[in-house]
Each structure stands twice: as structure tokens, then as C-alpha cells.
Design a protein around this nucleic acid. Structure first.
Lengths: 199, 199
DNA sequence: TATTTCATGTAAGCCGTTACATGATTCT
DNA sequence: AGAATCATGTAACGGCTTACATGAAATA
């Protein structure tokens, strides 16, 4: 049982899904792809952690709708309280900006634009996800037991992360506009404050 | 040449470092470990992208201090303007909170505490890194060509990300305290605002 | 006309993690 | 006394990515 297997159980604890849908959904929070998901679902089924209903279709391959079993639910709950492993992040952006001092300003501008575009897309995606959730739930979400509460909280998190990254890019541009003879250490706090604006 | 190889070049574009130091430094922005770094450094040396000076030591293994070559610098600059691949994030926290609606409040509390502890540690680490940088540079940092500007900007980013995550956890606790019959969708914006506080 | 969406699966190869291996010095 | 730090390296295994494979319907 690797981490991805538990992730699949977590999504299935909320609703029944096909392998295809699981791949799309989990990608919002955990980077993977379908060729990793399908074999794990087979294993989980063999172990008795999930079960599936076969839906016959024409024109498309038959669908398997997966559901978590009682045993799977127990395994999931054990894992939730177990040690929280460190988050891993791998973003080329960081490695590229690290050597900034040896890049010319045109190159830095190209890089920042790419980062900003990526952020804007993510912000739009997450806003859409929130709208969809609101419509699905008829605007009702009132406690920690509410359906989709986890999804709601995580989308909010992801949205704010994208916003902070965009604000960070803007702050970098501003620092550059200050010109020389200004101590950048003094602008750290200014940045922390600006993150707050929500426009 | 994989992404990590370019990452090593990026760090070496700023200063000369040993494989050991490279491993420590790159881990702030890119998760890896020494057994991946050493073989790549050998490859980079064979290709002519880096060179090293052997420093003999007693009691410890001899040190190799690596430097980027002119050829390595050209390869690095080509990569910086090439396509920015999507960031990959893998954080168990998200998968664990996703199924929140089927967890009891004690379990959620344990989870949130673990996340908060992790955030606090990161915040302290990044604050220390900033202090160290400030001391090293004598508080001077005034343009995009300044040494360590990339490091400075990335530490700031990482710090703000940790702060926003901690604020997010607190916001979740507050939502829970509101009790039922309150629509959580209405509290999204409140959260965005609170992120701003820097205490 | 070409790409995207739905829908599943396999195979090869690369990549990364964990563990093994060594060993003096310093900190707790 | 035990753990962490400095410092390098290899080996085995497991996991993940890319590509292969199919194919209808809808969209651009």
C-alpha cells in the first residue's frame, strides 16, 4: 500500500468514481496519471479494500465504478492518524529563479511572465471549481460533516496559494522598479502585507 | 540531463559547492537526497558541464568542490528560457483532509495539529535563513544582480507559503467553532483577508 | 480536419528512495 | 552514551512517466 493507494481510498470515501474520474480528481491535489491509477485499483480490489460495478457501454470501453469497502474504510482511518510524511514539491520555477543574479533582465522577464500565466490559469480553475461546488451543493455547506467539506477546504487552500504566488511575482517586478540604492531587505514586510489584497 | 542536473547547475552558477552542500541547499526548493546527487555530479563532470577541485582531509572523506564551467553556464541559460514544466506537489495532508466528512472531530484535531506543527517549523527555518542571509550580506541587497538575490526571493516565497498554510489551519478551526447553521461559503473571503496578518 | 473527451489497460525504462558502508569529531 | 554533522559513494528495489494500443463522439 503506497501513498497513492490511500489517496484513492480517500476520494472513494466521499463518492463512488471510475478510474478515469479518480485520475482527474486526485490530480488537483496529488500529481499522478492514469497508468499508475488503474493497476493500483486492481490491487485494491484483490485486497478487498474496494469493489466495483461494471457498467457496459457502447462506443467506449466498459466502465468500472469503484466504491470503498468497510475494510478499506478501516485501512483509510488508520492511515489518516499515522505519521504525516513531509510534503514534496518539485517546481522548476524555483531552480530557474535561483540563479537570477547571472541572468539578464529580458530572460527574467520571460520567466516571470510564464510563472504569472501559470498562476492566473490556476486561479481561474480554482474559482470555477468553487462555483461548481456551490452549485452542486445549492450553496449549503455548514459543518465538518457536510458532504464535500474536504474538497471545499482544499480548493480554498490551492486558490490562496496561487494568489500568493502571483502577488509574489508582482512584488519582484516592483522591487526591480525601485532601482538601485534601495535595500531589498526592507521590503520583505511590504510583501507580506500585499498578499492580502483580493482583487 | 534531467531536471535535478539543471538544478545543480543553477546552484553552482551562484557559488562553488561540494556534493554534500548541494544536497542540503537544493532541498530547500527541490526534494532529493545525496544518493541522487553524487552520480549526477559525476555525469556532469564527464560531460564537461562542471569541474571540481579535490581537497584532501583527514578523518573525513576527501572533499570535491564543484564549479560550473562556461559550457555548463550555456546549458543552464538555454534551460531557463525553455518551457516551464508544471510544478508537482505531493502532500499527504491533502489526501488525508479530503475525506474529512467521514472522520470524527478528534481525528481531525490530531491531523490539524500535525499540519500546524509542520508549518511552524518551516516558518522558523525560513526566518533563520533570512537572518543568516542578512548577516552574510551585511544587510545589503539592492538589485537583481546582487549576489544571493534568487535565494532571498525564494526564501520569502517559502516563508509566505508556510504562513498562509498556518492561517488556513486556524481558519478551519474557526469555521468549526461557528457551529452549524452557518454557510461556510460566506467565510471564504474572510480567510483571504486574514492571511495578510503578520505576527 | 484535428484535437479533446471519455475509458481502459500494458510495457519499458528512467528515476528516486532506502539501505548499506565508513569514520572522526562535536554536541546533547 | 548516543545522536548528529561532515563527506563520499554503491546497490537493490519500488514507483512513476512516457509511450503504445483502441475507438466513438463531440468540439474547434
Amino acid at each position: 500500500m503506497n501513498k497513492l493507494s490511500y489517496g484513492l481510498l480517500s476520494l472513494l470515501a466521499v463518492e463512488t468514481l471510475t478510474g478515469y474520474e479518480l485520475t482527474q480528481k486526485i490530480n488537483q491535489f496529488w500529481h499522478t496519471n492514469h497508468s499508475a491509477v488503474y493497476p493500483l485499483l486492481s490491487e485494491l480490489e484483490t485486497r478487498g479494500s474496494v469493489s466495483f460495478k461494471l457498467i457496459e457501454q457502447n462506443g467506449k470501453p466498459d466502465k468500472k465504478i469503484f466504491a470503498i469497502t468497510d475494510q478499506g474504510m478501516l485501512e483509510l482511518k488508520k492511515w489518516v492518524v499515522a505519521d504525516l510524511r513531509p510534503a514534496l514539491k518539485k517546481d522548476e520555477m524555483a531552480l530557474k529563479l535561483f540563479c537570477m543574479e547571472s541572468l539578464d533582465s529580458a530572460t527574467i522577464d520571460i520567466l516571470l511572465k510564464k510563472i504569472e500565466t501559470r498562476c492566473s490559469k490556476k486561479i481561474n480553475q480554482r474559482r470555477e471549481s468553487l462555483e461548481n461546488l456551490k452549485n452542486k451543493l445549492d450553496g449549503k455547506l455548514d459543518s465538518f460533516n457536510s458532504p464535500k467539506i474536504g474538497s471545499f477546504l482544499l480548493i480554498q487552500k490551492s486558490l490562496s496559494e496561487a494568489k500568493i504566488e502571483l502577488a509574489w511575482c508582482k512584488w519582484i517586478r516592483e522591487l526591480n522598479d525601485k532601482g538601485e540604492n534601495v535595500n531589498l531587505f526592507d521590503y520583505a514586510f511590504t510583501y507580506d502585507c500585499r498578499v492580502t489584497d483580493d482583487k
